[in-house]
């Protein structure tokens, strides 16, 4: 088994195939999209492959340590040009091929006109524990 993170971007990913902003869809298309996402998460959970799925607010802040006794340094909200993660789904699957399959299915979620989004998702393997048997 191997864990993968599927990252969805607000910004920074290549443009989706069906690239119409969500507030320009019809309400039914929005509903269909959300239904598809929930349904997929439900199926992955039933298959024992879902680890976690979370959505993030678009507004965030950069923070860093600024020395003892000083308040943290902050920067933000993020500039428009920066890569911005919208949310993730973590899965635990048997193979890289299966991870690609799940990502492709997620990317096929319906968008404007009920057509698949063809959205680019970022697939990142988790670094795992070293194996018990090494030789």
């Amino acid at each position: 088994m191997a864990k993968y993170l599927l990252l969805k971007h607000y910004r920074g990913a290549p443009a989706a195939g069906n690239d119409v902003p969500m507030d320009r869809w019809t309400p039914d298309e929005v509903t269909a999209h959300i239904g598809f996402m929930n349904d997929l998460a439900g199926r992955l959970e039933a298959a024992g492959e879902l680890v976690d799925a979370q959505a993030l607010a678009p507004e965030g802040t950069w923070v860093r340590y600024d020395g003892p006794g000083r308040p943290a340094v902050t920067d933000g909200p993020f500039a428009e040009t920066k890569d911005l993660v919208a949310g993730w789904m973590a899965i635990d699957v048997d193979s890289h091929e299966r991870a690609l399959e799940v990502a492709a299915e997620l990317s096929s979620a319906p968008g404007a006109g009920g057509e698949p989004l063809h959205e680019w998702l970022e697939l990142r393997p988790f670094l795992e524990q070293p194996p018990t048997i090494t030789e």
Binding site: M22, D23, T26, P27, E29, V30
Partner: peptide, 9 residues
């Protein structure tokens, strides 16, 4: 989002 979509339609 649905409200925005509805008003835009």
């Amino acid at each position: 989002v649905r409200q925005a979509a509805r008003v835009n339609q």
